[in-house]
């Protein structure tokens, strides 16, 4: 465990926890402006969380520990990912966990916890949300892993630190067809995993169209705060991962205050820009019907396979 790793392991989770509600705020603000509205301000998600922490906890009748622990597990998995993935510093506090497969599996574990909580309530909407979330997860997994495959073949490792460092040393790789195809595939996957339009609409009120929201309809107060925080964190983590896999510049490679500061700023700028772009793009597309989503995911899977083929035949 190096000094840089420890610094990264402390700075990153703090940054992700503090920054991800702001990211959601920025994205809502971008959307509001494009719709001609004034918007509630960037800090609004934080105000929401503060308020939720002051509210009452509710245990719906008939729910078990699964329902109570799911928000904790959801945040914890994302927190571990925030600690280990090289967002600010190239070295990881827990290097043997900073593996792409492990990170993907950890994020999936969070989704599973929430799906079980949705089923645990025994309501029709909870079960419906869980069923849809799991269907999408099952279809996203192949694309995600094959895209990772394409990215890690050129480096010979699935360790995130190694991938990021090697891109830093050889920037030309970023504009290779492998990277571009994999990037497009990953973007689609991230949209699906974080429940954004066109796969899911985070601000829908219509239960029948819900995916993520349907699972959390029973949560209130601090539990809901955890769920909302976790979904914001997942979004930042995915966008940060995307940014640093393809454009790791600015990331700290040594444990000096200046380098870490630059790393923090670079991450904020990159994730902010990606989030803004995502929010702007959402204004232009409508939500897909649930059963059109597999077609979208199949398309991205094809791109990921092409990326692997390219990585072999163009190497």
């Amino acid at each position: 465990m190096s000094a840089l790793g420890v610094v990264g392991g402390v700075v990153q989770p703090v940054l992700i926890v503090a920054g991800s509600p702001l990211l959601v705020g920025v994205m809502r603000q971008v959307r509001a402006r494009l719709e001609g509205r004034a918007g509630a301000g960037v800090g609004q998600p934080w105000r929401d969380l503060r308020k939720l922490l002051r509210k009452e906890r509710i245990a719906p009748r008939g729910t078990s520990e699964v329902f109570r622990f799911a928000p904790l597990v959801l945040v914890a998995t994302t927190l571990v990912v925030a600690v280990v993935v090289p967002f600010v510093a190239t070295e990881s506090a827990l290097d043997p966990v900073a593996d792409l497969f492990a990170v993907v599996a950890l994020l999936a574990l969070g989704a599973v916890a929430l799906a079980l909580a949705g089923l645990d309530t025994g309501t029709a909407f909870g079960g419906m949300g869980a069923s849809r979330e799991m269907t999408i997860l099952a279809l996203v997994e192949p694309t995600l892993l094959v895209a990772i495959f394409a990215l890690s073949v050129r480096v010979g490792s699935t360790n995130l630190g190694t991938i990021v460092s090697s891109t830093l040393q050889d920037p030309a790789r970023v504009i290779s067809p492998v990277s571009l195809l994999a990037a497009v595939a990953l973007v689609v996957v991230i949209v699906a995993e974080t429940g954004r339009i066109p796969v899911d609409n985070p601000s829908t009120h219509l239960e029948l169209t819900m995916v993520h929201e349907a699972m959390v309809l029973e949560y209130a107060g601090p539990d809901l705060a955890l769920v909302e925080l976790a979904s914001a964190m997942r979004l930042s983590v995915f966008l940060g991962l995307l940014a640093n896999l393809f454009a790791p510049w600015g990331i700290a490679t040594e444990a000096t205050p200046l380098a870490v500061l630059i790393g923090v700023l670079a991450l904020m700028v990159k994730v902010g820009v990606l989030g803004g772009l995502l929010a702007a793009a959402e204004v232009f597309v409508a939500k897909l019907r649930l059963f059109r989503v597999p077609e979208l995911l199949a398309g991205s899977f094809l791109l990921a396979l092409l990326a692997v083929a390219a990585s072999f035949f163009l190497a």
């Binding site: 922490l53 002051r54 009452e56 906890r57 245990a59 597990v73 914890a76 927190l79 600690v83 309809l217």
Partner: peptide, 28 residues
């Protein structure tokens, strides 16, 4: 790491939350 994260999150929420008692309510 996961266990540690769960403990940390649970601790933070416990201290930050104002109302600690869970009210049992009927399902929505």
């Amino acid at each position: 790491g996961l266990v540690a994260a769960v403990v940390v999150v649970a601790g933070v929420v416990r201290t930050a939350a104002v109302r600690r008692v869970r009210r049992t309510a009927r399902l929505w």
